[in-house]
Amino acid sequence: MTEISPDTPLRLAKAAEVAFPGGGMTASGLRKEATRGRLVIERIAGKDYTTLAAIARMRELCRIEPKITPSRRPEPAPGLSENDLPRIRLDRALEDCASRKRGQRRT
């Protein structure tokens, strides 16, 4: 049996089988990725080939970055409006400064 290196040209069906042993990817799926510009294929004598290295690059291009959601703003306590929050934060910060000057910490 021939050893398959990252640069060995493989027919698309074989490449899909080797690179995705659990299934789910087919030669047709690899062709679609090639038309989207994410997979390099070579057409030799009317047959499509790719390499495991090209599939690795395709997988990098297909990665989905995790969404970073902005942190939620704290909800004002019942009876307070959002306009009260900056004043409350300022009051707490001033209390902290005063406590530090006295050598105490607010709990």
Rank of each mutant, 00 (worst) to 15 (best):
P74H: 04
L90Q: 01
S99N: 15
S81W: 11
A34S: 02
R92W: 09
E95A: 10
T69C: 08
D91Q: 10
P74Q: 05
T107E: 10
I64P: 00
L94F: 14
T26N: 02
R57K: 11
L10Y: 01
A56P: 02
K32Q: 06
G46A: 02
A16I: 12
A53G: 02
P86E: 06
E60S: 10
E42C: 11
E60N: 10
R72G: 06
Q104D: 14
T107K: 05
L61C: 15
Y49F: 05
R31E: 08
E60W: 11
E60G: 07
L10N: 03
E33L: 13
T35F: 03
A98Q: 12
A93Y: 15
K67H: 12
K47M: 15
S71Y: 12
P86C: 05
P86H: 05
E33H: 15
G79Y: 04
D48Q: 07
V18L: 08
A13D: 07
R36I: 09
A45G: 02
R11W: 15
L61A: 15
E95T: 05
I4A: 03
L90W: 09
A34G: 08
A56E: 03
G79V: 04
R105I: 14
S28C: 04
F20R: 01
R63F: 13
K101M: 14
A45E: 01
T51S: 00
E95F: 08
E17F: 03
E42W: 07
P21F: 12
P76H: 08
D96T: 14
T35C: 02
M1L: 12
L39M: 05
K67Y: 14
N83V: 14
A13K: 15
T35W: 12
T26H: 05
A27M: 07
S5N: 11
K101C: 13
I44S: 04
I88A: 01
L52D: 04
E3L: 06
A56Y: 05
L52F: 07
P21R: 09
P21S: 07
R38M: 10
I55H: 00
E3C: 01
G22T: 11
G22I: 11
P70K: 13
M58C: 11
P70T: 13
L90I: 09
E42I: 14
R57I: 11
E82M: 02
T107H: 03
R73N: 12
T26V: 00
R31H: 00
A53N: 06
Q104M: 03
R36L: 11
M25P: 02
P76V: 00
I4Y: 06
D96S: 14
T2D: 03
P78Q: 00
P74R: 09
R92E: 00
L52N: 02
I64S: 05
A34K: 02
R11D: 13
R57N: 08
R57P: 01
D96P: 09
T35I: 07
I55Q: 02
T51I: 05
S71F: 14
I4M: 11
A54N: 05
M1N: 01
G22Q: 11
K67R: 13
D7L: 04
A56N: 08
D84S: 05
K67S: 08
C97D: 15
D91H: 11
P74Y: 04
A98W: 13
L61V: 10
P78R: 03
E17Y: 03
G29F: 10
V40Q: 10
N83K: 15
